[in-house]
Amino acid sequence: MVIEKKVEISMLYDFYSQLLTEKQRDMIDLYYNQDLSLGEIAEDLHVSRQAVYDTIKRTEKILYDYEKKLKLFHLFHSKMINIEKIQEKVFALENKINEGASIEELKKEINAMKLVFDELLNN
C-alpha cells in the first residue's frame, strides 16, 4: 500500500514527535497537520522561508531514519492489517453459522482465525 507523503509524515510525526526538538515539532505540525505554507510558517515563527524549508526537509529525513531504526509505524500498520483480517474471518464465521455450516467447516474457519491471531501476537 502506497501512502501519500503528507499522510505518511503525519503518521511518523504521531509516532516520533517526542524525539524531535520543539522547533522541528512546530514546523512539521504547521506544515503537514495545519496545512500552512512555508511562507506562512516563516512569518509566524519570524524566520526565513528557506530556514523553514531546510528544517522541514531535515526533519523529514530524521523521521524516516527513526522509522528505519525503530519500525514503530511498520509494526502498527502490520497489526492493523491483521486485526482487519480477524474481523473479516469473524464475519465469515458468523455467516457460516447462519448458513448452517457443518462442524468441520466451522472448525476450519476457527483454525484460520487462530493462524491470524498467532501472526498478530508474534509480530
Rank of each mutant, 00 (worst) to 15 (best):
K108S: 08
F91I: 14
V116D: 11
E109Q: 15
E109K: 05
Y16I: 05
I41K: 07
K71L: 06
K71W: 01
L115E: 11
F73S: 08
N95V: 05
N95Q: 14
D35M: 12
L63M: 04
D118Q: 14
E104Y: 09
K57E: 03
I83Y: 02
M11R: 03
L45E: 14
R25F: 00
A101R: 03
Y66Q: 09
D14V: 03
Q34K: 15
I110V: 06
S10Y: 01
K114N: 11
D14C: 07
K6Q: 13
E104Q: 12
M1H: 12
K6H: 04
I3M: 14
I62L: 13
M27L: 03
M11Y: 01
V52H: 11
M1P: 10
L106C: 00
M113G: 06
A51W: 11
G100M: 11
K71C: 03
V52R: 05
E67T: 05
E84D: 07
E109L: 08
E119F: 00
L120G: 12
E67W: 00
S78W: 04
L45T: 13
S48V: 13
I9G: 05
I3Y: 10
K61E: 12
K6M: 12
L106H: 02
I9M: 05
K69C: 05
R58A: 02
K89W: 05
L120I: 10
L120K: 14
M11D: 01
V47W: 00
M80I: 11
L30H: 02
L12E: 01
S78N: 13
F15M: 10
I28D: 15
L115Y: 05
Q34F: 03
L75C: 07
A92N: 10
K71N: 10
D54S: 13
E22F: 01
E119V: 03
K71R: 08
A101I: 06
E8G: 04
D14I: 03
I28A: 15
R58T: 02
Q24Y: 00
D118F: 09
K6F: 00
Y31R: 12
H46Y: 09
G39H: 08
V47L: 05
E109D: 10
K69H: 09
L38C: 14
H74I: 09
E99S: 15
Y66K: 11
N98K: 13
D14R: 04
D118V: 12
I56G: 05
Y32H: 10
D26Q: 13
V47H: 01
L12I: 00
L121Y: 08
D118L: 12
N82D: 12
I86L: 15
Y16E: 04
E99D: 12
